[in-house]
């Protein structure tokens, strides 16, 4: 079955992709932590993880119905929303932060759709974001957002999973900007005791299909797993394991310590 996808403009690598490529080509394994925007002193956590060796930071803009997230990130989103977080508060808070690494937003499409694609992309760029992940917008539905994002210089990161067929995987690699997000497992975000063979298989399929940075996320909980997954890819995304520490009351120091432990494990691998 042939894919019927909306056209996209050819674009040169942006700031996010350029930065990650440079780091990778210099021999580093990439490390990208995720945290929920608006949760407690989150901007301090962004600084702390950047300082601990993150190559980019993903920031969740909380949504009421996060269908790709497991219980931990759901709880974090709910708490951030109760604390009054909106896209505008996330953007405003970020304007006061210079993390020194590229920032990538992750959210669900209704927040964007409601504000309007162009305005959302424009406000993201102004707040200092370089990239965007919208897990509920597959390639077929990406037209309006993609045009707005490309115009605003926001790189849209696409996801592929273990059962993504070859034709779709090739299209994801071709269309993704910034990096390609490999989903390690079938399921939602959350820590897993083991990741299994499917993560490694997907990573090799992605690496064979693209020269863009390939980062693997979902389920990565500790330094051992980070090393395991990074061995066959360009690096890892670590979300729930960090968010859980924040929910448990760990502040910027605990976040720094955890990300530093991942950094040194990756550097020694």
């Amino acid at each position: 079955m042939s894919l019927d996808l909306p056209p996209i403009e050819a674009t040169a690598p942006g700031r996010l992709e350029t930065h990650l490529r440079q780091r990778r080509d210099a021999g580093a394994k990439l490390l990208v932590p995720y945290l929920t925007g608006g949760l407690g002193d989150w901007t301090e956590v962004v600084r702390a993880v950047a300082d601990a060796g993150a190559d980019a930071v993903e920031i969740g803009i909380p949504f009421s119905d996060p269908v790709m997230d497991g219980p931990t990130i759901q709880a974090a989103s709910e708490r951030a929303l109760v604390e009054g977080t909106t896209p505008a508060t996330v953007f405003a808070d970020l304007r006061r932060v210079d993390a020194g690494v590229p920032l990538v937003a992750m959210t669900y499409y209704n927040l964007v759709f409601h504000m309007g694609d162009e305005r959302f992309a424009g406000e993201m760029a102004e707040a200092g974001f370089s990239g965007m992940i919208l897990p509920d917008v597959p390639m077929e539905e990406q037209g309006p957002w993609r045009a707005a994002a490309d115009a605003a210089g926001i790189e849209t990161v696409l996801l592929a999973g273990p059962i993504t067929p070859d034709d779709r995987l090739a299209a994801v690699c071709e269309r993704s900007r910034g990096y390609v997000y490999g989903v390690n497992l079938m399921g939602v975000t959350g820590e897993r005791a083991s990741l299994g063979q499917q993560a490694a298989t997907l990573a090799s399929r992605l690496k064979a299909a693209t020269d863009k940075p390939v980062l693997m996320g979902f389920g990565v909980s500790n330094p051992e797993q980070a090393v395991e997954v990074a061995a066959v890819s360009d690096g890892v995304i670590v979300g729930t394991a960090l968010v859980r520490r924040i929910l448990d009351g760990g502040g910027p120091e605990a976040a720094h310590q955890f990300i530093a432990s991942l950094r040194s494990a990756l550097d020694e691998s």
């Binding site: 269908v67 790709m68 499409y109 897990p135 509920d136 917008v137 597959p138 390639m139 077929e140 539905e141 696409l158 996801l159 592929a160 999973g161 273990p162 059962i163 993504t164 067929p165 779709r168 994801v172 989903v183 079938m186």
Partner: peptide, 9 residues
């Protein structure tokens, strides 16, 4: 069809 890539197939 606003679903994650993993559900598209």
């Amino acid at each position: 069809r606003f679903v994650p890539e993993t559900l598209m197939p």
